[in-house]
Design a protein around this nucleic acid. Structure first.
Length: 925
RNA sequence: GCGCGGUUAGCUCAGCGGUAGAGCGCCUCUCUUACACAGAGGAUGUCACAGGUUCAAAUCCUGUACCGCGCACCA
């Protein structure tokens, strides 16, 4: 005897192992079939996967499994990302617990530790993906890593190609510098956070001792690097001062007042201190006016080139002192409370320091242009489409991409310098490692994967490699083709590229997706995917972002342990609609677990009723059609088969639109509401009759089909139960995941996107089965309501009379009275025209039927009257509404005819029912 | 500041031109031989506000308020 509740743990372990062992997720180029390819957004090897990964991968898995079942050669390419700064930070933290720094280890040893970490963490991630049910082959031969040998070749190839085209250059720019991470960052790796701060008004006296002017600043510590004050040339307050000199407080330097139209007269004092070395806007002003660039904050965030007392202090501490000193010197005119956004490092959340520095850049304008075109023409199409516009806007405003990072973990920039020829431009650390390179100082770059054998200029062989590594996104940008061995032009690459769809969260749309599109077009000649499915992020139940500091995060693996993977997948998928963020809570998981248990119990029910060695198997489509033709199918059979086909049609339409949430809901409702609550209940008595074999055959067909249909979304439970049924359904097919999606009885019969084909075998009479069942269900529901109203326990049967003036309708009920007696638990059911209402009976209406349930002694006359009067009231207002509409000549003349007809018949229905209710009320009185 | 999205039952959301829906929660009755992780029934909403278009508006348009998210060199 099977246990009453489903236990997901062992089942999941079992199948996840079997799927891997049988190598079911490996793909091979099959020219006879269309490929369906997704490359995984490679998770960073920073630690365990979180809820966001779970969502991202479950969505992909559902698509891949679905497309495989529709007959495509499905391939989901697995891999992980080295994750540059983020991962290096993780390692630095680990070292810190050992009381060490990366400098203690040195570059080489540090990288050894990183690689050791990769093997551990990479494995953990792959295990977690497997646990989530992901249809990824995680064998070593199949898993890619952004820093493995093949990907390194791709990175070099891309770098060198862009270099040759002049799209990579080295230049001195104002860049975002994280003093904690010790590296430059690109613009999109900077976050903006609102912070409460102050706006300090500082008086700068004129050099000649006259009044001078007052500037307003949020960063008083940078004043030591001021080399001008700018005012708007149209500003009458300051016009006379333009060209004059000011004496910089504390520093004592003399600086000019310059005219700049970018200065906003209305902000602050209308006078702006200009610090070209520490502010992007000031940097531009400095260039335009040929100002001096004085760096007062160095790359460690400490004060330099300034009065002795501040020197070596970090900028934050220096600010306090400087403000104090300004106050003491009576330079500080005002401190205003002020909220403004502060630049922070995406990875470590420390303040970003804008600094001038020589870095490597990629010229973006030319790369962006064809990507813009691809998005505009929808060669790359977004789901939901609302992302198209921001995507294009971002590309249009694109700035050059700073790709060099002053960290150790990553692809080392493939540029070498001859120690002899570039000696003046190279600086070495105490440990003898190249620390900085200056192109301004005359460094001569040689782009090469490995150390060049000989210097073309001096013939020497003493080369050093550029110390920087590439932005981690540089390698990620190549992912859709580097995973297939590019630059090698293999058959594999030709077959799988471009990939089908990219599934990603909106937070990396620019960081990653835009760059993939650009590099795909640049290196492969066409975009890397046709569709971008953009999903939201997982939030807590109240829509708050999950975060460590709020403590509202949910660990996906602990949830799968507790409720099962399928339950979690269901909970997530059923809410994944339209790219919106998903509120998530444990309650949702309980719902998922309950659904899984429901599925399991239907299996249990079927197994309990299947006699051993009976030879009963699932009826296939052909057999069902034959049975139908011979009249052997019941109304309930017709009805459920239609419902089933309809549900599958809906699933197909949803999936063609990447609406996975709705697809799942459709199946949920079909299975629970139609199949379990109605059909299964009607099948029960039939199992006691000669119809048993047919009944079981249909049940197996529907249940097996539902398992297939649900499999992409809930792979474990469906595979498990299907294997239990295998002997009765598809004895020759070893795995559910290799089965065809059960579209056979639905309209299209083909893969998603091709619907609109033949009507299904069961839809020809559709309206009839549907409307007949509706009538019966209506009657059943009314009787049940009466029972509940009078608190009749389910075990007790109840005498019921049904009457109507509609002969055909009565005929239908008469024919299916067993349905009613079973579902409504009646006894002595009388169905006939002109039945009188028994004196002490509860009454109800359904369609054309009057329903009477005699209840000796149980009935409270007043209560019954009130109940019926209430119903009459409802009908009355409905009637009034219809009458109102029909009285309006405008409605009659302008509304669609079908609509007018609908209202006419609704009115007639209301009138009819009202009259019948009034009769009952009169009798009660 | 500009842009995008949201505002519907206690909670989370679906519906997007013809009389308001789901899940969870709540109330009542039941351990009826698949499932109490269940079954049956019930209660609950001026669909943010104000105008407009329409025979008809939660649904389309305009504006307002509030919430969320992007983008932006206001020092």
């Amino acid at each position: 005897m099977l246990p009453k509740t489903y236990d997901p743990g062992p089942v999941e372990d079992k199948w996840s192992e079997i799927w891997q062992k049988e190598k079911l997720f490996i793909s091979a180029a099959d020219k006879g079939r269309k490929p369906f390819v997704i490359v995984i957004p490679p998770p960073n090897i920073t630690g365990a996967l979180h809820m966001g990964h779970a969502l991202n991968n479950i969505l992909q898995d559902s698509l891949v499994r679905y497309e495989r079942m529709t007959g495509k050669e499905a391939y989901w390419v697995p891999g992980t990302d080295h994750g540059g700064i983020a991962t290096q930070n993780v390692m630095e933290k680990m070292l810190k617990t050992e009381g060490r720094t990366k400098e203690d280890l040195g570059r080489e040893k540090f990288l050894e530790r990183m690689w050791a970490w990769y093997w551990v963490c990479g494995d953990t991630i792959l295990n977690q993906l497997r646990k989530l049910g992901c249809a990824l082959d995680t064998g070593k031969a199949n898993v890619r890593f952004t820093m493995d040998a093949k990907r390194a070749t791709a990175v070099f190839e891309a770098f060198s190609a862009l270099w040759k085209k002049g799209l990579i250059y080295r230049g001195e720019r104002m860049i975002n510098w994280c003093t904690r991470c010790g590296t430059a960052l690109s613009d999109i790796e900077v976050e903006y956070e609102e912070e409460k701060s102050k706006l300090w008004h500082i008086h700068y006296p004129a050099a000649d001792g006259s009044k001078g002017l007052t500037v307003a600043t949020t960063r008083p510590e940078t004043m030591l690097g001021d080399t001008a004050v700018a005012v708007n040339p149209e500003d009458d307050r300051y016009k006379t001062l333009i060209g004059g000199k000011l004496k910089l407080p504390l520093a004592g330097r003399v600086i000019p007042v310059i005219a700049e139209s970018v200065v906003d007269k209305t902000f602050g004092t209308g006078a702006v201190k200009v610090t070209p070395a520490h502010d992007p806007a000031d940097f531009e002003i400095g260039r335009r006016h040929g100002l001096q660039f004085i760096r007062v904050i160095d790359f460690t965030g400490r004060m330099v080139n300034c009065p002795e007392k501040y020197r070596g202090k970090n900028a934050q501490a220096a600010r306090k002192e400087i403000v104090e000193d300004l106050k003491a010197g009576e330079f500080l005119e005002k401190e205003e409370h002020y909220r403004h956004s502060v630049n922070k490092c995406e990875r470590c959340h420390q303040h970003i320091e804008p600094l001038v520095s020589e870095q490597w850049f990629v010229k973006m304008k030319d790369l962006a242009a064809p990507a813009i075109k691809a998005a505009e023409s929808e060669e790359v199409k977004f789901y939901p489409s609302s992302w198209k516009k921001p995507f294009i806007e971002w590309l249009k405003n694109i700035q050059d991409w700073c790709i060099s990072r002053q960290i150790w973990w990553g692809h080392r920039i493939p540029v070498w310098y001859c120690k002899t020829c570039s000696s003046a431009a190279l600086r070495f650390s105490a440990a003898g490692e190249l620390s900085r390179v200056s192109f301004k100082g005359g460094a001569k770059p040689a782009v090469s994967f490995a150390k060049p054998p000989k210097c073309p200029d001096c013939g020497g062989a003493d080369f050093v490699q550029d110390p920087d590594v590439l932005d981690t996104w540089f390698s990620s940008a190549l992912w859709p083709f580097s995973v297939f061995g590019w630059p090698q032009r293999s058959e594999e690459l030709a077959y799988y590229y471009p990939t089908s769809v990219l599934v990603t969260g909106y937070e990396i749309l620019y960081l990653w997706v835009a760059r993939m599109v650009m590099s795909g077009i640049e290196h492969m000649g066409r975009p890397p995917f046709s569709y971008v499915y953009v999903h939201g992020i997982i939030r807590d139940r109240h829509g708050k972002k999950m975060s460590k500091s709020l403590g509202n995060g949910i660990d996906p693996l602990s949830m799968t342990d507790k409720y099962g993977t399928d339950a979690m997948r269901f909970a997530i998928l059923s809410q994944a609609a339209g790219g919106k963020d998903i509120p998530f809570s444990e309650e949702a998981l309980i719902g998922g677990r309950n659904f899984v248990n429901k599925i399991y119990n239907v299996f249990r029910f079927i197994m309990m009723n299947l006699p051993e060695n009976s030879g009963i198997t699932s009826l296939d489509e052909k057999q069902l059609k034959a049975l139908k033709a011979s009249g052997a199918l019941t109304l309930a059979d017709d009805w459920i088969l239609e419902r089933y086909g309809g549900a599958l049609d809906d699933v197909k339409a949803c999936m063609a639109d990447y609406d996975i949430g709705n697809a799942v809901s459709v199946l949920y409702r079909f299975f629970w509401d139609d199949f379990c609550d109605w059909y299964l209940e009607l099948a029960k008595p039939r199992l006691e009759t000669a119809d048993k074999a047919v009944t079981l055959g249909i049940l197996l067909h529907l249940f097996g089909g539902t398992l297939k249909a649900l499999h992409p979304f809930m792979p474990y439970v469906t595979e498990e139960l299907f294997s239990g049924l295998k002997a009765y359904t598809s004895p020759d097919k070893p795995f559910l995941l290799k089965e065809k999606y059960p579209f056979s009885l639905s309209a299209g019969g083909g893969p998603a996107g091709l619907f609109g084909g033949q009507p299904s075998a069961f839809s020809l009479q559709s309206s009839q089965a549907e409307s007949s069942m509706k009538k019966i269900m209506g009657v059943v529901t009314q009787i049940r309501t009466l029972r509940a109203e009078f608190e009749i326990p389910p075990a007790r049967t109840v005498k019921t009379l049904i009457t109507s003036a509609d002969k055909n309708a009565l005929e239908l009920l008469k024919k299916h009275e067993s349905y009613i007696s079973r579902l409504a638990r009646t006894e002595g059911l009388e169905i006939a025209p002109d039945l009188a209402r028994p004196a002490r009976a509860a009454s109800a209406l359904s369609d054309a039927f009057n329903i009477y349930v005699p209840l000796e002694g149980m009935i409270d006359l007043e209560k019954e009257k009130a109940r019926i009067a209430k119903e009459a009231g409802r009908l009355g207002s409905d009637l009034a509404l219809c009458e109102g509409k029909l009285k309006s000549p405008n409605f009659i003349s302008r509304a669609a005819k079908a609509e007018v007809d609908r209202v006419v018949s609704r009115k007639a229905d209301a009138e009819n029912k009202l009259a019948r209710l009034e009769t009952i009320l009169r009798e009660l009185a």
